[in-house]
Computed example of a mutant assay.
Amino acid sequence: MARQSDTQAPPTKARRIFLDLRSKILSRKIDANTQLTLRPIASEYGTGINAASEAIKALAAEGFVTLEGKAGARVITRDLHRIRAEGVLRIAIECEAIRRCAMLADDIQLSVLGGLAEKVDRLFEEGNQLDQCRQADIAFHVTITDFCGVPELRESLIPLLDRLVTLDQTEKRTSEIPGQKHLEVYEGLKSRDPVQAADVMRHHLEHSLSLTLALLYT
């Protein structure tokens, strides 16, 4: 039985279109440079133009398409070198954030992070709420930067996460999605050893980057 606190309203029509199109782009059922036109999308999903437009704008916000006037958008070619570079930048930001967090976070903040880590791993284990799992994953990483004492690290990290966190609704599932291992990151934080915490985070994110590249390019 789902916990009452985890009960969420069903996704909107626009959200359902967005999730399905994102899944098809990531699994390459929709190829790079494909034009996505609003009226055919609305017809395919049985919705109005407004819902289709909202879904396309959400794809653009996450870097999957470029908008082309009022008619629709075009799927972006995935740039392997850019994704790898952004992954390396994310590792640098988050290792510094967790190093500081291990030294500065109080017991209440550590408890918050422990709850977030448990939530990500539980949602992944359940396996039927991958979008919620993806959002919980992002929340865990952002909260570490919230507690590290350097707001600029949070501001630098957030633009990277939507493109790099890959707990997506694709059919290309793997048994090694990093969502299984957030409690290991939390244990690194609990050690209060900044070097140990940074090492655990680096391992976690290097694994995540390898998965991202495998999902998109294999």
Results as ranks from 00 to 15, higher is better:
residue 185 V to S: 00
residue 109 Q to S: 13
residue 9 A to W: 15
residue 174 T to N: 04
residue 122 R to S: 13
residue 117 A to V: 08
residue 139 A to I: 04
residue 41 I to Q: 01
residue 30 I to T: 07
residue 7 T to S: 11
residue 52 A to D: 00
residue 194 P to Q: 09
residue 112 V to C: 07
residue 150 V to R: 03
residue 145 T to Y: 03
residue 93 I to V: 08
residue 42 A to I: 03
residue 28 R to V: 12
residue 194 P to N: 11
residue 217 Y to D: 02
residue 190 K to H: 05
residue 123 L to N: 02
residue 189 L to F: 10
residue 212 T to I: 09
residue 17 I to D: 03
residue 72 G to L: 01
residue 116 L to E: 12
residue 58 A to Y: 12
residue 217 Y to I: 09
residue 158 I to R: 11
residue 205 L to V: 04
residue 146 D to C: 03
residue 70 K to W: 07
residue 199 D to V: 14
residue 173 R to A: 07
residue 191 S to D: 09
residue 166 T to F: 15
residue 178 P to I: 12
residue 130 L to Y: 08
residue 215 L to F: 05
residue 164 L to I: 13
residue 88 V to N: 03
residue 88 V to E: 10
residue 104 L to N: 13
residue 79 D to M: 01
residue 206 E to Q: 13
residue 144 I to T: 07
residue 116 L to G: 05
residue 174 T to E: 06
residue 122 R to W: 13
residue 27 S to D: 15
residue 83 I to V: 11
residue 91 I to A: 05
residue 21 L to P: 00
residue 162 D to L: 12
residue 58 A to I: 02
residue 34 T to R: 03
residue 106 D to Q: 07
residue 95 C to A: 11
residue 28 R to C: 06
residue 16 R to H: 13
residue 140 F to A: 05
residue 89 L to S: 08
residue 11 P to G: 14
residue 160 L to K: 04
residue 146 D to N: 06
residue 99 R to A: 15
residue 170 T to W: 00
residue 106 D to E: 09
residue 85 A to R: 08
residue 85 A to Y: 04
residue 35 Q to V: 08
residue 8 Q to T: 15
residue 55 A to W: 03
residue 183 L to M: 09
residue 16 R to V: 13
residue 54 E to N: 07
residue 25 I to L: 01
residue 167 L to R: 04
residue 180 Q to P: 01
residue 68 E to L: 13
residue 48 G to Q: 06
residue 85 A to D: 10
residue 165 V to P: 02
residue 216 L to I: 10
residue 54 E to W: 07
residue 125 E to P: 00
